[in-house]
Design a binder for these strands. Structure first.
Length: 418
RNA sequence: GGAGGGUUCGCCUAGUGGCCGAUGGCGGCGGUCUUGAAAACCGCUAGGGCGCGUGAGUGUCCUCGUGGGUUCGAAUCCCACACCCUCCGCCA
C-alpha cells in the first residue's frame, strides 16, 4: 500500500508512477475519493459517539424524570451510533480496496516501458567455448542427477527427482549460499512454507499472482512460492529497533502452480512446481533502502562469481515490475544450450509498500513510528543447477565443479557420468 | 480428535457493567544525591485515526486476542473464531 499522505500532497507523482507502469491512472482518483469519504464517515461517527459517551456518563448520576429523559435520548443515539459506525467501517473497507489497487511508486531511474524494455547494466564473466553444448537435461541424465520421468510418474508434469550427484550438488549450492549469507551477518531462517491468507496477502501475492499459488482448501492455507512471504510476515505488527538493516536468509522449498506457462520451458528443471531457494530479506529505514538494494545485488553477483557462471544484470522496466516493487534488478545466467541468458536471481526494493500492509514499523530519531522498507533478493535456487551443469560441462561428459562448491561436495572437483 | 485452563499497555500483573485507556511491580529513559558508580527518592514510559497549529504541541475518537451480540453504557455479560498451555488419544 502506498503512503496516503504522499497521495494527498502529490497525487500527480502517483499518477506518473501508474503511467510508467502502464496501469490505470483512474485508480489514483478512486483512491483519493475513497480516502475523503472515509474521513467524512469517521468524523460523523466520532461526533455521535462523543455525544453518546457524554450523555452516558450523566445517566449514571441522574435520577427520576431527568434520568428517564436522558435514557430516551441515549436510546435514539444508540441507533445513530450503530449506523454511523457501520458506515465508517464500510468506508474503511472501500478505502482499503482502493488502496490495494494502486501499485508501489516506481523508483526514479527505473527504465520506462514494458517487459522487453529492460536495460542491461553489465555482462560479467566469459562464456565457455563449446562446439555443441549439451543441455542440462542431457548432462544430468548422463550423470543420473535428475529423473524427470519418474517425477512425472509420481507427481505429474513439472515435477522431478534430484538424485545422486544432483541431490548432492543442490545441497552444496544451497549450503554455499547460506554460508555466504551468514558471513555477511544474515540470520539464517528455515520458515514455514504453509502460511495463512493474511500473510500471503500482506506480501502482495494474492493480487495478480493469485493463480500461481497453491491453496490448501481444507485448511485455508497457502503454499509459499518463496520464503519471502514468511520472512516479510515474520515481523508483522511489530515496531523494530533499527540501528542498521535487519537481514534474514530464508531457506525453503518453494511451490508454484505455473498456471498459464503451458509450453514454456517444458524441458528439464527450468520451470517446475517445486524447487528450493535461499532468499535474502532486509528490513531497513526507507532512506537506506536504495543502498541496501545495491548491496543485495552485489551479494547475488558474489554468489554467481563463486559458482563461476557468466551472467548479465538487467534493470527491469517500470511496466514489468511487480505491484510491490519500486525497482528490480535481475541477474541472468548464461545458458549455453539456449544461447541466451536466463533469470536466476531477482532483487526487489519494495520500499514501504509491503511493510505498510504488514504494519511493520521502527522509531525515528524523534521517537515517532515510521514504516520500514523491505527488500528481497535471491541467493541460490534449484534453477542454478542448469547454468552450473551447462557452463562447466566437459567434452568427456563430465562436469567440472567450481572451487567454491568443492568443500560442500566432499572435495570432489569433477562429476563423472555414472 | 477429546477434556479443561488461558489471552490486559516491552515482561509480569490488578481489574465481574458507568468514577477504566485501564492498577501495581520489573525493565527502560530522565532527574536529585555522589569525585564516579551503586542504593535511595522523584518524574516519564502502548498504538492508531481524524481535526487544529508553521512548530513544540493540542483536542477528540478507536483499540484490553479477533469478529459479532446484549445494554442508555462492555476489559467486565453472551456467542463464534484464532492462538497458547495442561491432560488423554493418535502419530512422524
Amino acid at each position: 500500500m502506498i503512503d496516503l499522505r504522499l497521495l494527498r500532497e502529490d497525487p500527480d507523482a502517483v499518477r506518473a508512477s501508474q503511467r510508467a507502469r502502464n496501469e490505470s491512472e483512474s485508480r489514483v482518483d478512486d483512491l483519493l475519493r475513497a480516502d475523503e469519504e472515509r474521513r467524512a464517515a469517521v468524523q460523523r461517527f466520532e461526533a455521535v459517539r462523543g455525544e453518546q459517551k457524554l450523555l452516558g456518563k450523566q445517566v449514571s448520576s441522574a435520577k427520576g424524570d431527568e434520568r428517564a429523559a436522558l435514557l430516551a435520548r441515549t436510546k435514539e443515539l444508540s441507533a445513530e451510533v450503530k449506523a454511523a459506525e457501520a458506515a465508517a467501517n464500510e468506508a474503511e473497507q472501500a478505502l482499503r480496496k482502493a488502496h490495494m489497487a494502486v501499485s508501489n511508486l516506481v523508483e526514479e531511474g527505473a527504465p520506462p516501458g514494458g517487459e522487453d524494455d529492460y536495460v542491461v547494466l553489465r555482462e560479467v564473466g566469459t562464456k565457455p567455448d563449446l562446439a555443441n553444448p549439451r543441455d542440462h537435461l542431457e548432462i544430468s541424465e548422463a550423470l543420473r542427477a535428475v529423473d524427470m520421468e519418474r517425477g512425472a510418474k509420481v507427481s505429474g508434469s513439472r515435477f522431478y527427482f534430484l538424485i545422486g550427484v544432483g541431490a548432492l550438488l543442490e545441497n552444496a549450492l544451497l549450503q554455499l549460499a547460506i554460508a555466504q549469507a551468514v558471513e555477511y551477518d544474515f540470520t539464517p531462517v528455515i520458515p514455514p512454507v504453509l502460511v495463512k491468507p493474511e500473510s500471503m496477502e500482506g506480501t502482495g501475492y494474492l493480487g495478480a499472482h493469485a493463480s500461481e499459488v497453491y491453496r490448501l482448501e481444507a485448511d485455508d492455507l497457502f503454499l509459499v512460492g518463496t520464503s519471502e512471504v514468511a520472512l516479510a510476515a515474520f515481523h508483522t505488527g511489530e515496531i523494530l529497533d533499527l540501528d542498521g538493516p535487519i537481514r534474514y536468509a530464508g531457506s525453503s522449498s518453494c511451490f508454484r502452480r505455473e498456471a498459464g506457462s503451458h509450453g514454456k520451458d517444458v524441458r528439464g528443471i527450468m520451470r517446475v512446481h517445486q524447487f528450493n531457494k535461499v532468499e535474502m530479506f532486509s528490513f531497513c529505514r526507507p532512506e537506506e533502502a536504495r543502498d541496501e538494494h545495491r548491496r543485495l545485488l552485489a551479494w547475488e553477483e558474489e554468489m554467481l562469481a563463486k559458482v563461476e557462471i557468466p551472467y548479465r544484470v538487467i534493470d527491469t522496466a517500470a511496466g514489468d515490475l511487480g505491484s510491490s516493487a519500486a525497482r528490480k534488478f535481475d541477474c541472468e545466467a548464461w545458458v549455453p544450450s539456449q544461447g541466451r541468458y536466463r533469470e536466476v536471481t531477482s532483487t526487489s526494493n519494495c520500499t514501504t509498500f509491503q511493510a505498510r500492509r504488514l504494519n511493520i514499523r521502527y522509531r525515528d530519531a524523534d521517537g515517532r513510528t515510521q514504516t520500514v522498507a523491505t527488500l528481497n533478493g535471491t541467493l541460490a535456487t534449484t534453477r542454478w543447477l542448469i547454468p552450473i551443469l551447462e557452463n562447466h560441462q566437459q567434452a568427456d561428459g563430465s562436469v567440472r565443479v567450481p572451487k567454491a562448491l568443492q568443500p560442500y561436495l566432499g572435495g570432489r572437483d569433477v562429476l563423472e557420468p555414472a
